[in-house]
Simulated scan of single mutants.
Amino acid sequence: MDENRRPIKTRSAGWARYITNRLVKRDLSPNQISVASIAFAFVGIAALNIDNGIAGSLLCAIGIQLRLLCNLFDGMVAIEGGKKSDIGSLYNEFPDRIADSLLLVGLGYAIGWPDLGWCAALFAALTAYVRVFGGSIGLPQSFIGPMAKQHRMAVMTVGLLLNAVEASVYASHYVLLMALIIITLGSAATCVTRTLAIARQLKGAAHVDQ
Rank of each mutant, 00 (worst) to 15 (best):
C70H: 10
A47K: 10
G112N: 01
A99M: 03
S172N: 08
G56K: 11
D209F: 06
R194D: 02
A46C: 13
P7G: 00
L23M: 14
R11H: 10
P95C: 05
V192R: 14
T190I: 02
V132S: 14
D96F: 04
Y170I: 01
F42C: 03
G134C: 05
L196N: 05
W118V: 13
I144M: 13
V158P: 02
G135H: 12
M178T: 08
V192E: 11
F94D: 04
K9R: 09
L28A: 04
G81L: 02
D74V: 03
A16M: 10
L58D: 09
G63L: 14
L162Q: 00
I8R: 07
R22H: 12
L116P: 06
P30D: 05
R152S: 03
A41I: 02
K149Q: 04
V192S: 12
L139W: 07
F40D: 01
V24C: 12
L103T: 00
I183H: 10
A164H: 05
T184C: 09
T190A: 01
T195C: 08
T10I: 09
G186T: 01
I19Q: 03
S172V: 11
L104G: 00
A189F: 12
Q141M: 15
A120C: 07
D51P: 08
I183W: 12
L180Y: 00
Y174S: 02
N31W: 03
L23I: 10
V35R: 06
V24P: 09
H207D: 05
V24G: 09
W118E: 06
D27Y: 14
A171D: 06
D27E: 15
A199M: 08
I62Y: 14
I50R: 10
S89R: 11
V158Y: 04
N52I: 11
R67V: 06
D115R: 13
I198G: 00
P140L: 00
L160E: 06
D86G: 15
I87Y: 15
A55H: 11
V35M: 13
R6N: 10
W118D: 08
G204R: 05
R26N: 13
M147W: 06
L196R: 13
A197R: 02
K203Y: 04
L72T: 14
L23Q: 03
G53C: 12
T20G: 04
N21Y: 12
P114A: 11
A189C: 07
L66Y: 11
N31C: 05
A179N: 00
N52S: 15
M147K: 03
